[in-house]
């Protein structure tokens, strides 16, 4: 049973169809990428999932039941893209306050805060104020406040922005860890290399519509262009009968596209028969970045206002 199912969600604002009929489901324990260009409707979608907005139409099923914002928000952790903490409040008190707002008892919250602070080496921060922290430090704090109440569903909007590689890895490891322990993570970002590295499943939205939905592996297969990189000596005398065509060279490798109806083995066969020595042969799968750009390209970069 998926942890979250969205059925035909719609949310229209005065001048925009922010979310226009989007459905997808997120499986338990998955790291799920919610992608899309700026203004695609991601934030609106997330705000409906976190109970901040009510959808105009459609249904949200959370953990097998109709989503009930008042009670279910205790099982959701949300880290918005624009980080927010009280600047003048002491860090310990603030973390405790946010945890209690999520429904934890004081004793329980204190115990968990202590554990997380030790894990992230933040013990000395307790009596400091947020305004004393650097951007990266407050990011770590924000992450802790998001996951502290052990939510079933964690929504992270650009969690790595502003973090150095060391702290990025720390957070990344925690994300894997949380997923391993049964939490589901929805991960919203523009950084495609992170998506490829972390996510199992992605959904791409643009202009309020879902335009792509699948596992990272599957999507890459779907968008592959039968390109291979062959590391070999000069491939000479092409006569048009080979099972491939050369489309370019890169780093002393030939980039070839296999012709329709042929298989990679045919290519190798052909080259071996020609007596060409091969030292590498790799399939080139499109990067998510390329797929993203390809799909989103052609639509105006900024969303236009529209009449509804």
């Amino acid at each position: 049973m998926p942890i979250l199912e969205l059925h035909n969600l719609k949310k229209y604002f005065a001048t925009q169809k922010a979310v226009d009929d989007i459905s997808f489901s997120v499986e338990r324990g998955q790291i799920f990428g919610l992608l899309g260009p700026n203004g695609a409707g991601k934030t609106t979608l997330i705000r409906m999932i976190t109970g901040i907005f009510y959808p105009d139409e459609g249904q949200i099923i959370f953990d097998g039941k109709k989503f009930d914002p008042v009670n279910d928000v205790a099982y959701i952790g949300y880290m918005p893209e624009e980080r927010g903490l009280y600047k003048k409040m002491k860090i310990g008190e603030q973390t405790l306050y946010l945890a209690q707002l999520k429904g934890l008892s004081k004793a329980d919250a204190l115990k968990k805060i202590k554990q997380w602070f030790i894990r992230f080496e933040m013990e000395s921060w307790w009596n400091k104020k947020v305004e004393d922290l650097s951007k990266g430090m407050s990011q770590k704090l924000q992450f802790v406040t998001t996951v502290l109440h052990e939510p079933k569903l964690i929504i992270l909007d650009e969690p790595f922005s502003g973090l150095d590689p060391v702290n990025s890895n720390l957070i990344k490891d925690e994300i894997f860890n949380l997923a391993k322990n049964g939490s589901t993570i929805i991960f919203s970002t523009h950084r495609m290399e992170q998506v490829e590295e972390i996510c199992d499943h992605i959904v791409l939205v643009n202009k309020g519509n879902k335009i792509l939905d699948g596992t990272v592996k599957q999507i890459k297969q779907d968008f592959k262009e039968n390109l291979f990189s062959i590391g070999a000596e000069q491939i000479a005398s092409l006569n048009g009968e080979e099972p491939f065509e050369i489309v370019g060279t890169k780093n002393h490798s030939h980039i070839v596209r296999i012709k329709e109806g042929s298989k990679p083995n045919d290519v190798l066969q052909y080259l071996l028969n020609k007596g060409i020595s091969i030292h590498s042969f790799n399939e080139i799968l499109p990067s998510l970045n390329d797929i993203f750009i390809k799909l989103v390209e052609g639509t105006p970069t900024a969303r236009q206002f529209q009449k509804i």
Partner: peptide, 8 residues
């Protein structure tokens, strides 16, 4: 911070 709080 409003966005964090209204999610609770």
């Amino acid at each position: 911070i409003a966005e964090v709080i209204v999610s609770s």
